[in-house]
Design a protein around this nucleic acid. Structure first.
Lengths: 144, 144
DNA sequence: ATCGTTGCAAAGCATTTGCATGCCT
DNA sequence: AGGCATGCAAATGCTTTGCAACGAT
């Protein structure tokens, strides 16, 4: 979090109240293992810092993601969620995501979960898998 | 295709010019290994059967998917594409999809590609993976 | 003849953009 | 002081919906 702010600064990006509020919201959600959409983030920012305009939240999320402070995951069902970016753990990629299409919950999975597929895709198609960028769909244990 | 029409009929759904046009478009795209969004399908339908309204295309796609004649895949980047539904091949699920986030191309991958992940997710989380329902992102051979 | 489907137009919703002002650095 | 970031409001683009007319069975 403080780390995120300093990374922002060293990337030459300004730290404004709006951006700080967005970071706080995303950070809090992260700690609670929540995955928020731009819209949801906007709503929470509005509670904490009502002066921040929705459009600014969208612009902020975009630039923070470009800067690498945040990363986003595309969920099935056309929503995009954000979380604080983490440095790659080792030779594996970032952690992955799976989503239950019944309850909508998003589960984090360890980075090496996709090693097998990643390997096959690379060998057979020359396709480099970006493990953390899209969520797979299925049914979670609770919803079966 | 003819098969699709009869499945529609036996599901108690009516076969209208609009639905027939949508099926033709999706079928043609399928043969060409193309993956079309609702919008794109709408555009092609308009060329072939101009009297069909956009709203009808959306409604048609929804009901055809519910009926099981079509299936849809959520791509990363918030687009949903449709193709003719295929009967499950064997004990594996349906074929999967990966998308290149550089050129946007969608590649089909064999159903067993995800066996490893599916197994792990089931063992570790009790999560049942729906292999054909969401696309993973990465970089294709041509774009590296 | 029935009732599911359609066309139309309008509403809905999330997201984006132009522009003048404000504020971080 | 300089220039990026913001607020505002309007526009955009995709998708949905209410309703009366239509047509597949």
């Amino acid at each position: 979090m403080a780390d995120a702010v300093s990374r922002l600064r060293s990337a030459g990006e300004r730290v404004t109240p709006a951006r700080y509020a967005v970071l706080r919201v995303v950070d809090a959600a992260d700690l609670a293992d929540e995955h928020l959409t731009a819209e949801q983030i906007g709503a929470r920012v509005a509670e904490v810092e009502p002066s921040v305009h929705r459009a600014t939240v969208y612009r902020t999320l975009t630039s923070l993601a470009e800067t690498g402070v945040l990363s986003h995951v595309h969920l099935g069902g056309s929503a995009t969620v954000y979380h604080l970016a983490e440095p790659p753990v080792n030779h594996h990629g970032h952690h992955g995501h799976v989503q239950c299409h019944v309850c909508g919950r998003v589960l984090d999975v360890p980075p090496d979960t996709f090693d097998g597929v990643a390997r096959r895709l690379l060998d057979e198609l020359g396709f480099v898998l970006d493990t953390g960028h899209a969520a797979l769909l299925g049914t979670c244990a609770d919803c079966r």
